[in-house]
Design a protein around this nucleic acid. Structure first.
Lengths: 199, 199, 199, 199
DNA sequence: AACTAACCGAGACGGTACGTCTCGTCTTATG
DNA sequence: CATAAGACGAGACGTACCGTCTCGGTTAGTT
């Protein structure tokens, strides 16, 4: 990180405009702190210290801790891995598997923090909600394709189905049980796709 | 609250043992703060102030903010509403409906706080996890009864099924969308019980 | 007090530098508390409250209670009243009289506190010691002038003589007997200057 | 210490009277704490802990920290070493030397604490004052004997003379400079007995 | 070329909460 | 009724962050 900066000593103003080096340094620092030490260690003070930035610079561009968290989460790569194998079970299994894997490897600490922050900051809650509705809408395409193929009944609400699977993933993330076996994921998909009722 | 105390002036020690009046006052104060002002306003300091208790008294009995939160949550009534209508769809619908209603009316603010706290406090996470596994096991009885009646396939993992429904409820709680219509809940139950696949 | 500030509302930062208004407010508050309520009421918390300053602001500039006490004592006027009447008896009588008067009117409560604090805080003890050695050295000039005039034997240690008189004053201060008559002071001076031995 | 107690486990009431074992244990503990860790570590709490006594037991018999300190100081041996060599200079030198030695070896920490405490506790101040006046009166006998022998002028106030020497000793005690050379002590005695004035 | 405007870092400011310590009071159970 | 034990309300301790502010300096655009 921070490779774009001129390797030299001190970062300063570049005139009456946002300094992208500072932005980059701040986001990098925030991400690193979350990843290395978790939400408890994540404070504006700590980010400023690590990014060698002034606190007002952070407050100028991110009105709240949640806004910074959201930006950090957005910087992650993942977004929009949209499986399309032609089989709804495989697509959904890949969806859940890759989500859990992403959280396990990288973004989990950040997303957990975002959810936690949203529980006390209404602005964060609103931002999170908006972000999620969009994400679920996107991922709903998996279901909609399956409906076009005739695999899934047409009256099924695609977003709601995604929210069910996503909710299961949240449950695992927020209780620290991301190490979910293939079998468990298959069982979840089977339940949602095939139902649990006796034939 | 605090009606049990002798209406007189000051609460004090009752010897070398825990004073139940103090415990009650602290839990009441904690609950009131969470309900009225939310997690952001919930601090040991504030609880002590409102309960007219010394901070060490709180720290003596609750080692962390999370422990206090958990106790406050436990004091709520709800726990263990276990529908048994003889029909798995009705049972599960009641399960989800009553959970959301309970959170909407009373315990939501507290449980949200508990989850949020668990994201930065490992001890809270562990306590939450233990609590949930037990709750899911209890609620899993709904599925197991249905399996005995032949309504649900025997190889289905009852706890996992409950976690799926519970996860959906979490998703609604944590994104502030507890006002869930009957139809939506029915759709969720239908998906999980009957599956989404075309017949 | 605080007349220098703009009489308006709130004192705040003036950039990356010590705010003299805050310093003044803190020292004034500390002095007032000591004078009005004594050492027992003197706490960093109380000073912060009265000065309308944050505790960290105090700890930033004064590492210990003793450092603050010392600064408060230094702010007093007295310092360096150095009588030079041409007669050693008169000089010393003035020295003791004005010291006791100063303590009686103003600085006594503060200096008592400083000595008390030094009995449990090594840093305070060291600061006090350094301060006193310097003060005795200064006051020793009274003796040295008398030696030059031939009033006092040349082999007499001027600092030690001052410490004897100063010690007597301490005894009076620390036992709350500052209301010392002229006669008593004269008797003390006579003893030290003329000795108690029969001629 | 504590050798008088029955070496067995638990000390308890001996009926409606003061238990001397407890008193002994408390005074011993108080003395040990002062000697080993100084005034800063001296708290009723600490004394009770070390003496394995209940706090109320201490508060019952000693109304204030100062009262306990005074009792501890009284338990020391020293008291009343009253030199009588027939020579006032020798007597006074012994008086000062043995006082400083006693404080250096044993009682200094305790007496310093007592003086410090008296600066914030009026009751302690009063107790200290009464104790000192008595002590000075006793030690004044040194001067009075010398007056009878004709060594010291009859109009000299014996108590005041003792207070001067005592004040010098206080100065050394309270500034942590008890390591006073023989020469310095002699110089002090010479000043007071013979005066500093040129012949 | 001078001026303004917004940015930058630094860090002080008044606050609040933290978790720990001791205070002096209280009530118990034990003898 | 004294004792050891220990809980209680109170509040100070010194530290960490909060979000705001002012500073001195830098660099664009605008005159």
């Amino acid at each position: 990180m921070e490779t774009s900066s001129p390797a030299s000593s001190r970062r300063t103003s570049i005139g009456s405009q946002r300094n992208p080096d500072s932005e980059e340094a701040i986001l990098s620092a925030a991400e690193a702190i979350l990843r290395e030490a978790g939400l408890a260690a994540f404070s504006i003070e700590a980010v400023a210290r690590r990014a060698k930035a002034g606190k007002p610079t952070i407050y100028r561009w991110w009105p709240s801790k949640a806004a910074l968290l959201l930006d950090v989460y957005h910087r992650q790569k993942h977004h929009g891995h949209m499986p399309d194998t032609g089989d709804v079970r495989s697509d959904l299994a890949l969806f859940v598997t890759s989500l859990l894997a992403f959280w396990r490897d990288d973004g989990g600490a950040i997303f957990r923090s975002l959810i936690a922050e949203a529980q006390s900051d209404p602005a964060a809650l609103e931002a999170l909600r908006r972000y999620l509705l969009e994400r679920w809408r996107q991922s709903g395409a998996i279901i909609q394709r399956a409906q076009k193929r005739g695999e899934v009944r047409p009256e099924i609400d695609s977003d709601l189905t995604i929210e069910i699977l996503s909710g299961f993933a949240w449950s695992r993330l927020l209780t620290g049980r991301l190490d979910c076996s293939e079998d468990e994921i298959r069982a979840v998909i089977d339940a949602v796709v095939g139902g649990i009722a006796a034939r």
